[in-house]
């Protein structure tokens, strides 16, 4: 099989499109299974980013196979991944393209979710509970999932654009969601990653169908999970929120004035709160309280 005929899959997620490719058939099969609800072509056949999972050396195609990423925007020297984690590798490759290459919106490392045309932005460090909270909103409260990894801020209006790739659940939150979402929306259990165990949860089909429709930003929440903590919230100033958003954006500074304006416009439009919670029920309740407050 020559390189031009490797298994591949074109994939549209929100405003971005990817061409994924690997000589390892199982990697692309897994992508096709997980991304079954996503469009497999672009309007004119031209895609934004190529992400290839290639053998780390020609020998590694056949003997103790492992792979590395080749993308439009390249990762640093990285250790090879086992083929079983190949799909995760492609996911990381797509994330890297968004983080490093994408410039059509301000990209913020955040989750986002919408209800009735209005959206909440969930910011915070890895492990703060963004993915879990957005998954709960989608599967328990019936919100429209916009994304759990990157939120896309419009450059001209206070809008969030969906980037609803499969939700990346980690460790304990996997079982939390397994109890609440249909079994057929889950990907395979991926063990032994740098973040521990990962399992993808496909957003509800309606969220994928509506992924070209932006929503007006109405609330910014910075969730903090602390074991057994009593639920609490406090408002954040615009300055504090700006600093947090800017620090969690991959491209805001690089986009100069347009990036600054986009972030500031969103802050000026949506009040921001810091919340602390110890259980998912507390988190949802706090969130609902704040949502009623800002959308009343």
């Amino acid at each position: 099989m020559i390189a031009d005929h490797w298994p591949s899959r074109t994939l549209r997620i929100g405003p971005a499109s990817f061409h994924l490719r690997s000589p390892f058939r199982r990697v692309i099969d897994e992508v096709n299974a997980l991304y079954r609800d996503y469009p497999a072509a672009t309007n004119d056949g031209i895609y934004d980013y190529a992400v290839n999972a290639v053998p780390s050396s020609p020998l590694r195609r056949w003997i103790k196979p492992n792979l590395r990423l080749e993308c439009d925007f390249e990762p640093f020297d990285t250790l090879p991944l086992p083929v079983e984690l190949g799909m995760l590798g492609l996911e990381m490759g797509m994330n890297l393209q968004m983080a490093v290459g994408y410039r059509r919106h301000v990209v913020v490392h955040a989750a986002s979710s919408a209800e009735g045309g209005k959206a909440a932005l969930l910011i915070g460090d890895s492990g703060a509970g963004k993915s879990t909270l957005s998954a709960l909103l989608a599967y328990r409260e019936g919100w429209r999932h916009l994304g759990d990894e990157f939120a896309l801020l419009d450059l001209h209006a206070p809008l969030l654009h969906p980037f609803p790739r499969p939700i990346s659940l980690k460790n304990a939150s996997i079982s939390t969601m397994e109890a609440r979402a249909p079994t057929d929306r889950f990907g395979p259990v991926l063990e032994g990653t740098v973040k521990g165990t990962i399992r993808h949860l496909l957003p509800p089909a309606a969220a994928i169908d509506a992924m070209q429709t932006p929503a007006e930003i109405a609330l910014v929440v910075a969730p903090h999970f602390r074991e057994n903590a009593a639920p609490a919230w406090r408002p954040m100033t615009r300055t504090e929120t700006y600093v947090r958003l800017a620090a969690s954006s991959t491209n805001q500074a690089l986009m100069g004035e347009a990036g600054f304006e986009a972030v500031w416009r969103c802050l000026a439009h949506a009040p921001a709160f810091d919340i602390i919670y110890g259980s998912s029920d507390d988190a949802l309740e706090l969130f609902e309280t704040l949502w009623r407050k800002v959308t009343a």
Binding site: D44, I46, D48, Y102, R103, L254, G256
Partner: peptide
């Protein structure tokens, strides 16, 4: 030019403008 190409080219054009400003 086709839409898909323009998206990528416009992004790069804006990037270059930023580069030149910096």
């Amino acid at each position: 030019l086709p839409e898909g190409a323009l998206t990528c080219l416009a992004e790069e054009r804006d990037l270059t403008r930023g580069d030149h400003l910096a």
